[in-house]
Design a binder for these strands. Structure first.
Lengths: 119, 119
DNA sequence: TAAAGTGTTCGATGGAGGTCGACCACATGA
DNA sequence: TCATGTGGTCGACCTCCATCGAACACTTTA
């Protein structure tokens, strides 16, 4: 293995921003928090859009939402605290991943209801 | 068919109170309403207590809830509108039934999460 | 260094809904 | 007819949270 330059974050470790990124595993999330998270229509839109693309391909700003970026940031924080998404910084952008398997094991069927919703 | 007196409500038809009882089938309930209904801890307590007894054996006043009867009445109305319970008047009391099968068909897994919650 | 792009934090605001007391409606029994 | 018990309705209150603009922090690039 040579000493070639790495361009991803793994080689450099977490950035200053990513250091403050706290995640919670779905198994540690109370049902109350999970229900509160999915009870909001904007957050359900985020989840559905996230499910339609491969993991780590959607930055927070790329979602089509009828709210300001401050509100948007708030919603992503709630989803993260509810164990519904995982986030990773890449340069100035924050990419997202839907925690399908983990969340479905903790709350079977709940995420499926959200993703099946026809808006 | 003779003209003998009937003592149950079916023979006399719905009482004056029951006439104003509007139910909604779970299949007609939007996901938003279903999630809002189960997102409240008092309502989840009602659902769990209801699941622990046979159908039509629990009147509204027999539930152990930390709220006034006005609030209690409000919660039962929300659960009814969400297709989670069915109500039937018997004398001055209003008995309840959990709409397990119907609701589970409309929102698979959701009610199970509520009933499995350990308080 | 400066500028542009992305995202968070802060403080304030508004609305939705949970809560209550009081009163009302209905059924039952004395 | 009256009293009692059950439950709903009404109006008011209050808390929580979604929302926003503004300011800030970090990264990248010119």
């Amino acid at each position: 293995m040579s000493v070639r330059r790495e361009s991803n974050t793994e080689a450099r470790g977490p950035s200053a921003r990513a250091r403050g990124l706290t995640h919670r595993h779905p198994s540690e999330v109370p049902l109350q928090d999970a229900l509160d998270a999915v009870a909001d229509p904007v957050r359900r839109t985020i989840l559905r859009e996230l499910a339609g693309r491969p993991d780590w391909t959607r930055a927070c700003g790329t979602f089509d939402l009828p709210v300001s970026k401050a509100t948007r940031s708030h919603h992503f924080a709630v989803l993260r605290a509810a164990g519904l998404i995982e986030q990773r910084d890449e340069g100035p952008r924050r990419f997202n991943r839907l925690r399908r398997a983990e969340f479905d094991q903790a709350f079977p069927g709940l995420l499926a209801l959200v993703l099946a919703e026809r808006v």
